[in-house]
Amino acid sequence: MIEHLKNIWNKRPLIISGPCSAETEAQVLKTATDLAASNKIDVLRAGIWKPRTKPGLFEGIGTIGLTWLAQAKAITGLPTTVEVATAQHVEEALKHGVDILWIGARTTVNPFSVQEVADVLKGVDIPVLVKNPINPDLELWSGALERLQKVGLQDVGMIHRGFSSYGNTEYRNAPMWHLAIEMKMRYPELLMICDPSHICGNRVLLQDVAQKSIDLDFGGLMIESHIDPDNAWSDAKQQITPETLSKMIDNLIWRVKSEQDEATELSLLRERVDQVDDELLLLLSRRMKIADKIGSYKKDNNLTILQTERWNQILKRALDKSASLQLSKTFITKYFDAVHLESIQHQNSIMNDMGKKLNEL
């Protein structure tokens, strides 16, 4: 790797920005020049090939977009980065002078695809970032990193972009911070940056998520920026203008770590506990919302709240798993008793709602 790019790769924080997708030559060049003028970013990104959930959606402009990125690089001096998912993508990106590659979440879930990318990069000196897989499977994420390292790549890093979570409403992809922290613990020497755009799926939460990642000592940010976000061809809701990005970066509080304040292993472990607790509370809240629906069903069908047989099934199922989960049966019993009591209280409140209304008459 050339010295200039090495210095950028090692910069903290490393800020990557650009459009979700390269759409037109004018759009790429204008976005790039506006971002460069802000003097707030280090690397220009753009999606060239877009793996979309459903057919018929815009799946990227293709190789022609790489020539636009090369022009943007020549004009602004900004290094460029694109997502790759196949050997052909890698070859085209390298041919057009792309400086940094990243592997997307949909590719990380497939070891065959990751290995294909790794094999074509054998002997190539280029930094590669790996996004977490869509599903919360740290072994897949770790495996992707290790496949790249095994072919000799020296500069490998991670992008935390959140995980798919059924029923999640606040975020497009639930951050599950404790999983990212676990990966930082496993690979303390590797760069970890945050992708708030894909975690949020909207502009409203970008600042908060970016700040959270900074507070957790992430090494940088990847944020999508577009000259006309509302009319973007993909992921319009989560993109911001270069001007908005500049203001956002100015408003972030960048933490400075001194030797005295440097996080110890104990403090990192405590942070992981806090994040897991947050996830548990969210899951318990979701469980009680389901209990509310059960209460409504029982009320409509004149059923009793307490269903002893069903409760015994739940408790037995949990106790049967206790040994494999390294949890004592005493703890499991106390925990589920408390959850059951809260569930009964929720259902009781719904069942007796009519009585309250009658009393108010």
Rank of each mutant, 00 (worst) to 15 (best):
A210F: 01
V256H: 10
I227K: 03
I227H: 00
S197Y: 02
D228L: 03
E189K: 06
C194L: 12
Y187S: 12
S234G: 09
L191Q: 08
L205N: 13
I214S: 15
N251Y: 00
D195S: 01
K212R: 12
D235I: 09
M192C: 09
N202P: 06
K257M: 09
K212A: 13
D235L: 02
I193V: 14
R255V: 15
L216M: 15
L190F: 04
C200H: 00
D250M: 03
G220S: 11
M185L: 13
L268A: 12
L245F: 07
G201C: 05
M248T: 14
Y187W: 12
D235M: 03
D217M: 13
A210T: 04
D274Y: 05
A263R: 08
I240S: 01
D261I: 08
K257I: 15
P229N: 11
C200K: 02
I253F: 02
L269V: 13
I193W: 02
A232C: 09
K257A: 14
M222T: 08
I253T: 13
P242W: 04
L252V: 12
D274F: 06
K184E: 08
Q260F: 09
V256Y: 07
L206T: 00
Q207D: 07
V256W: 01
D208N: 07
L191P: 02
D228P: 00
Q211K: 06
E271I: 11
P242G: 00
R186T: 15
E271H: 03
H226A: 07
R272M: 10
D228Y: 05
V276F: 07
D235G: 09
K184Q: 11
S197W: 02
S225W: 04
R203W: 01
L268E: 11
D250F: 02
Q238H: 04
L221F: 05
D230P: 03
I199P: 02
M192S: 11
N231A: 15
D195M: 04
K237Q: 14
Q211L: 08
K247H: 07
I223Y: 00
E265G: 11
T241Q: 04
Q239W: 05
D230C: 10
G219S: 13
E243L: 09
W254F: 15
D215E: 10
D230F: 03
Q275H: 09
Q211F: 03
